[in-house]
Design a protein around this nucleic acid. Sequence first.
DNA 1: CCTATTCCCGACTATTTTAGTCAACTAAAT
DNA 2: ATTTAGTTGACTAAAATAGTCGGGAATAGG
Lengths: 166, 166
Amino acid sequence: MRLTAKGRYAVTAMLDLAVHEDEGPISLADISRRQGISLSYLEQLFAKLRKHELVNSVRGPGGGYQLSRAANQIFVAEIVDSVDENVDATKCSGRADCQHGEMCLSHQLWSELSDQIHQFLAGIDLASIITKREVAQIAARQDAVQERVQEDIIDEIVKIPALAEG
Amino acid sequence: MRLTAKGRYAVTAMLDLAVHEDEGPISLADISRRQGISLSYLEQLFAKLRKHELVNSVRGPGGGYQLSRAANQIFVAEIVDSVDENVDATKCSGRADCQHGEMCLSHQLWSELSDQIHQFLAGIDLASIITKREVAQIAARQDAVQERVQEDIIDEIVKIPALAEG
DNA sequence: CCTATTCCCGACTATTTTAGTCAACTAAAT
DNA sequence: ATTTAGTTGACTAAAATAGTCGGGAATAGG
């Protein structure tokens, strides 16, 4: 799981779509103007969002993009994953200098951490972000999530194979 | 909050320090060898970790780096923040095209999300990652024992004449 | 049909970040 | 003194990010 400005742009744009959901298709030009993201860059991002079926497109005058599902069925993790195209995965599987295990340990520790962040973002949908804008509500709900997630990560970490000597 | 390979390297290196905590100062050369990170790149990362007082340095032969605090007092979020040097903050504070508010809404939504991720990582310390893993090793060993016992029982069962099929 | 709008697509480019190199230097231990 | 190892800064190659450009193709309205 990577978190960069690219993902933020995508989530921002999707939030814009969700907010203006009832106005019919929203053109990228509108999003560009409202969110301060260049049109061409939005085109690249939406090509990926469309490929991952998070949005539908409508061509022609009055056309634009719409959410492919209800806003409460689209989760932040999906959006970030769509535009980040994460390729690397474990990164040390099958590598020679990973044989003595210590390196794999760290990789896996990070991987588990990353998975937990992913789960965290997989639990947050666009609608909940928009409708529950009161900070206290969001914070309270996510504290509960956070607690569970932290227990989970410990559970996952204890499954990691033994560490080689220093 | 950004999550990239850079932060992963830093966390990996800090985990290495924590694991070998009782061996005195750990040289970057050791970490480089064990974790497969280039020495010079580690130097850059540790310059920042040192600046943020997450590690202490010891010069000369037998020198190296040590955690500046107990491993259970060093949290993943601190490490990531140290090497990422996040500068941008709100990014739209005081900008002209943010006057009509809509852009600021999205920025703020993302900002809140980002804060939650940060809080999540701020709750995970190095020690909890490592100590729980040791518990796991014991558990894994016991699992292995239990497995063998079960196999033995099955071996015995198949030898019972009454169960032999015609 | 024509035309404006808008998505669609690929190639291209500039900037920034990542990751790493190199070299010279300082501190300390033997 | 010599060796080990941190400290610093300048430099570079490669990748990702962010954006540009130019042409398409679909479609609504006239």
